[in-house]
Nucleic acid binder design. Structure first.
Length: 609
DNA sequence: AGAGGTGGTG
DNA sequence: CATGCACCACCTCT
């Protein structure tokens, strides 16, 4: 491929006054596709100075100086970036979108993201992040000089950009074009254009979500941490006292206090205690094993761990993530953080905050700002509905059409019982068994592990599975077909077109069967989990569109796989809740046609209910 | 610094 | 021989 620019000597204009702005836009407005990038002093959009906004054609880059010009107040500039007809190529556009929105009040529209594209092209066999340097090398054979980036962090409001900084900034927009051209060919070849477009639309919603952040009731949070650590410390003390007889000598510290016998957090020291001192012969110290041991010390460890987990993973650390400027927590959502299309979340991970419990009501600490409400909506039994729809199994479909509890329905059929209104209460074990199969199958689960969970012999487990598949023959056909095709093709797909790739093992690989089995399980799960993710992502885009169209004072603040939380102005909350529910259903119905999609909103002063 | 164990979520 | 999907955080140990 021939480059249309010289990476050593790129053509650029440093745009430092309004005349140059107009000249630059005269040229840029002729383009259908431009490259966009920014340089700033910090990664935090709430505490940063934007130095330049670079916008380029394939041959030339315009470096708009954001300190010498008030770019947000130039209508023509704003209109250009918000124009839906001009494609803006960005690398990791979420970053630029957030900085530009927060600092210039401009919402970049019609994004093509080279990083997201690369992830979409390599789902399952690639990574979650690709640097522009990597893609420049891969698609254009250009070795980007990245050391200069660090020099931007030390800029003061008055320091001038030097020539190498300007060149570096210019190359960053020029290089986007060859990457874009090559990626686009691959997107078309692999039939991934639509899913890439969805991801590009989602980026703006994620940007808004991260900018807005989540409000937290710090007082309540600290109270929970205090109580929980007190309980943890009490149990730890008892634990040390109880195990002391197993140790010959006590350690005494400087002040004459008896020290701990072991580090209760150490797996190795616990194994020594349980197996060498107490002779319990445990294979591990995991909760599942400890649960089976009838021993007060094991019980104490279980209790300790329950509290320790809460304190260490969700305690002080979360307080430190409150943004100084906004007073809110701004978790990072990675929209392609998983191989199936789901989001992942970190800093902190809001998708693993414990559910509501008497002991530690963590989720109740996430509250709306005064004057607002939180509207929470989740899809109900979404993945089961997806499995019913994709498999086309008439029996499972009709269960959902009747609106009955699907696990009870399954149990009644499997065990020849009447589906009474009190079924869940009257036959908890049967329902649990049916539920285990319903969920397990979506994970490609086998009869052995199923039998273990519901506490029956492996023969019985096999029998249950056979019975299940006689009831729902379409489910078996569907799962088998998906698994077989994934092994044959090297990929699986969701109805929306999201692909997941698999690396086929060599025929002479000693682990051949195990690896094939793993691919089959992943492939059975992918269309189901992935379709749920696709629906949630469409929903987020729909919600953002409705907010803009109808002028609601609202924003999504969280998404947890099958759930969306919006923070909304109090007097608009009830009206918005209806729309939120409707739009989420509409998104689900794009893929689920044979069974109803259900989602109910909940308006509250806290997350969860 | 990275791996392994453990455990929180959907 | 075994065979449950998708994550992230914290801890200890090497």
């Amino acid at each position: 491929m021939e480059l249309k620019f010289d990476p050593e000597n790129p053509v650029y204009t440093h745009v430092i006054n309004i005349d140059l702005v107009n000249q630059a836009l005269d040229e840029l407005e002729k383009e259908k596709v431009v490259g966009v990038d920014i340089e700033s002093t910090s990664l935090d959009p709430h505490d940063t100075v934007i130095l330049t906004v670079q916008i380029g054609t394939p041959v030339k880059s315009f470096l708009f100086d954001a300190r010498q010009l008030k770019l947000g107040e130039i209508p023509r500039f704003k209109k250009f970036l918000e124009d839906n007809k001009i494609i803006k190529i960005l690398h990791n556009g979420k970053f630029d979108y957030k900085h530009i929105k927060q600092n210039l009040n401009i919402e970049v529209a019609n994004i093509y993201d080279t990083m997201l594209t690369e992830v979409v092209l390599n789902m399952g066999i690639g990574r979650g992040y690709y640097s522009l340097k990597e893609l420049a090398g891969k698609y254009a054979g250009v070795d980007l000089q990245k050391a200069i980036r660090e020099t931007f962090e030390n800029m003061t409001p008055s320091t001038r950009l030097n020539e190498s900084q300007l060149k570096y900034s210019a190359v960053d927009t020029l290089i986007l074009f060859p990457v874009f051209d090559e990626q686009l060919k691959k997107l078309k070849k692999d039939d991934l254009v639509n899913i890439a477009k969805l991801e590009f639309a989602v980026t703006r919603v994620v940007g808004d979500m991260e900018l807005r952040g989540v409000h937290i009731d710090i007082k309540k949070w600290k109270e929970i941490i205090k109580n929980t650590s007190a309980k943890r410390d009490g149990i730890a003390k008892m634990f040390q006292k109880e195990i002391r007889p197993f140790f010959k000598s006590n350690t005494i510290d400087l002040f004459g206090n008896i020290g701990d016998c072991i580090n209760i957090n150490s797996q190795a020291q616990l194994m020594d205690l349980f197996n060498n001192k107490m002779h319990l012969s445990l294979p591990s110290t995991s909760d599942g094993i400890l649960e089976l041991v009838n021993n007060p010390i094991a019980k104490m460890l279980r209790d300790y761990r329950g509290y320790e987990k809460l304190v260490s993973a969700f305690g002080e650390n979360l307080i430190s993530k409150i943004n100084k400027k906004t007073g809110r927590i701004h978790p990072e959502f990675n929209q392609l953080g998983t191989s199936t299309g789901r989001f992942s979340c970190n800093n902190p991970n809001f998708q693993q905050i414990p559910r509501q419990s008497e002991d530690a009501p963590f989720r109740a600490c996430f509250t709306p700002e005064p004057g607002n409400k939180l509207v929470t909506t989740d899809y109900s039994t979404m993945e089961m509905r997806i499995m019913a729809d994709l498999s086309g199994d008439q029996s499972l479909i009709s269960a959902f059409q009747k609106g009955v509890d699907v696990h009870s329905h399954t149990a009644a059929l499997m065990f020849g019982l009447d589906l009474s209104p009190n079924f869940a209460k009257d036959h908890p074990q049967e329902r649990f068994a049916a539920k285990s199969i319903n969920f397990g199958l979506m994970y490609g689960r086998g009869s052995n592990s199923l039998a273990r969970q519901i506490g029956v012999s492996s023969e019985k487990g096999k029998e249950y599975l056979d019975t299940y598949f006689k009831l729902y023959p379409g489910v078996r056909r569907f799962l088998d077909k998906v698994a077989k095709e994934a092994v044959k093709n090297g990929w699986s797909t969701t109805p929306a077109g999201r692909k997941r790739w698999y690396i086929k093992p060599d025929k002479d690989d000693p682990d051949y069967q195990r690896k094939i089995g793993s691919i089959e399980r992943q492939a059975k799960n992918h269309p189901i989990q992935g379709t749920n993710a696709d629906a949630t992502k469409y929903a987020l885009v729909f919600l953002q569109e409705k907010i803009k169209e109808q002028g609601f004072d609202a924003s999504p603040v969280l998404t947890v796989h099958d759930e969306v939380v919006c923070e909304v102005k109090e007097d608009q909350a009830e009206e918005w809740a209806k729309i939120q529910s409707k739009e989420m259903c509409r998104a689900g119905e794009l893929f689920i046609k044979k069974v109803p999609v259900e989602c109910k909103p909940f308006v509250a002063d806290l997350w969860e209910h």
